[in-house]
């Protein structure tokens, strides 16, 4: 297959969980493209499908979960067609992931060294001794002090921040092209959060991988993302640069999201949480997913899923408001 300009391309991805109470449609047609070495931020409130998107790419969904349609292209090759064996080769070597909770993400009964060496040996021809050397090197790289000693310890002997460093070291063991970080700092103290993000940026510069940064906290990642994608109900609401999203939000959900977090612009205003409850993925609304909670909802929002419309050079949004505005603007002109 032809080499692609993009290291990762996701086309119309749908993922569902088949539970006793029915089909939970967690991801409903996600599209994005990621260039080598770039950073994509994915934001959205809890339950918007960020993690499911990430797990779908890696195909590490829970047993009941399945990609129901769409493509995930790695350098132009559709990995949803891969066999489990091929996926095993892909995971950890081409694409790695780190998770939200470093306290539970490492296996408690194996040493940190064993778990690092396992990741290394799975994808290289290194023997245990060579893998150990590499593991020590990796721990040094992610800023773990005294790695020769730390490597013999069990996860419970490391602090939360150190465990996230261990996880990053493990993810980078085979220098993947893509690193997915699923809320890597949510479980950590604020000071440690900054350190971990700084580390990731430093490593990205050194190793040149693309990063998908998942978060529900827009403020934290804005500065490090080339593009930000806002998700709601398993769909993309809006995408653009950090400036686009922050200074010219073009989707009612994004506007609500911005009103709910502290920023320079609303320093003197009260923070307003988005009203209403997150949608029921068992029973998706026919039109815009955000419609039941949207103050600006119109008739069309009830019945038609909004199309993604370009609202700026780098800026796209899926909200009928933009169509209305475009229509009114054209009338004025």
């Amino acid at each position: 297959m032809a080499d692609s300009k993009y290291v990762l391309e996701v086309n119309d991805l749908h993922t569902s969980f088949f539970t006793d109470s029915g089909e939970v449609k967690a991801v409903n047609g996600i599209n994005f493209k990621l260039e080598p070495g770039k950073t994509l931020g994915i934001v959205g409130e809890s339950g918007s499908g960020k993690s499911v998107t990430a797990y779908s790419i890696m195909q590490i969904l829970a047993q009941t979960g399945r990609i129901t349609s769409g493509e995930v292209l790695y350098k132009g090759e559709d990995i949803t067609k891969y066999s489990e064996k091929e996926m095993q080769k892909f995971r950890g070597s081409k694409c790695s992931i780190i998770f939200q909770d470093p306290m539970t993400s490492l296996n408690p009964v194996f040493t940190v060294g064993y778990q690092l060496e396992e990741a290394i040996m799975l994808h290289t021809n290194k023997n245990r001794a060579q893998a150990r050397e590499r593991a020590i090197e990796l721990l040094k790289l992610v800023g773990v002090n005294d790695p020769e000693k730390r490597i013999h310890q069990y996860p419970h002997e490391h602090s939360g921040g150190m465990r996230q460093r261990d996880m990053i070291a493990m993810a980078l063991a085979c220098e993947p092209d893509i690193l997915i970080a699923d809320e890597p700092t949510t479980a950590l103290d604020v000071t440690i959060q900054a350190q971990i993000l700084e580390l990731m940026q430093k490593l990205q510069k050194e190793l040149g991988m693309a990063i998908i940064m998942v978060t529900h906290d827009l403020g934290v990642i804005a500065s490090m993302c080339d593009e930000i994608m806002v998700m709601y109900g398993g769909r993309v609401c809006e995408r653009g640069t950090a400036d686009d999203i922050f200074y010219a939000p073009a989707h009612e959900y994004t506007k609500g999201l911005l009103r709910s977090i502290p920023r320079k612009e609303n320093m003197n205003k009260k923070l307003v949480p988005i009203g209403g409850t997150p949608i029921n993925l068992l029973n998706m609304p026919a039109g815009c997913a955000f419609c039941p909670r949207c103050d600006e909802a119109m008739k069309i929002c009830l019945t038609e899923v909004p199309e993604e419309i370009r609202v700026g050079d780098t800026h796209l949004a899926s909200c009928w408001m933009n169509v209305k505005e475009a229509f009114e603007n054209s009338k004025e002109a």
């Binding site: 489990e84 095993q88 998770f99 993400s105 296996n107 408690p108 493990m170």
Partner: peptide, 22 residues
Amino acid sequence: NQDYIRTARAKGVSRTKVIFVH
């Protein structure tokens, strides 16, 4: 159901090894 199982799968560990080792 634990997170470390997901981690092991994400590393590329085979299904058998995930079950019988991790």
